[in-house]
């Protein structure tokens, strides 16, 4: 029951863009430095996030990326769904296929409930809620 690195890094990129929304745009190099993720990997994830309308690219010599919509309107669930394909704990049943009795019982009583539970938690958070508060950031600087 793991979230892939693609899902994690993609979310990390979006949260970083949220935390730096006051700047007109952010380069992937600076995100990579702050978040300790390779720029090459960020580029791959950024392509998916741009195609899906989460971020927009800013062209030019000092180009970069910015959120395409306000951080308050982007849900953690939608981001992960986009990057992971789906968030289901078991492969969905192809139409017309009948499962045996034990599997059907487990699907109903465990897998379907887990899917609802997972969607419930990650459906609560927006990018804005996942971004560090300014105070926390100051504490962090002080810690260094």
């Amino acid at each position: 029951m793991k979230i892939s690195t693609r899902g994690q890094y993609g979310l990390q990129l979006l949260v970083d863009l949220t935390e730096h929304a006051s700047e007109s745009h952010v380069t992937l190099a600076s995100v990579g430095q702050r978040q300790d993720i390779s720029v090459r990997y960020l580029e791959q994830v950024a392509v998916i996030l741009r195609r899906s309308g989460f971020i927009r690219s800013v062209k030019g010599a000092s180009g970069g990326y910015a959120l395409a919509r306000p951080a308050e309107e982007i849900m953690m669930k939608d981001v992960l769904q986009c990057l992971e394909g789906d968030l289901l704990v078991a492969e969905p049943l192809p139409p017309g296929v009948q499962e045996n009795r034990l599997r059907m019982c487990l699907r109903r009583m465990v897998y379907d409930k887990l899917d609802l539970c997972i969607a419930g938690v990650i459906g609560k958070y927006t990018l804005a809620a996942l971004a560090a508060s300014p105070n926390a950031d100051r504490d962090f600087m002080y810690f260094i």
Binding site: L106, V110, K113, G120, A132, D139, F140
Partner: peptide, 28 residues
């Protein structure tokens, strides 16, 4: 200490555990 994302992951992990610890083989 300041990572909100980690708190959300932790909440998810706890919710998952809570659910699966509450279902026994007898229930199934």
């Amino acid at each position: 200490d300041s990572c909100q994302r980690r708190l959300a992951w932790k909440e998810l992990y706890l919710a998952i555990n809570n659910l699966i610890d509450g279902i026994t083989l007898e229930d199934l």
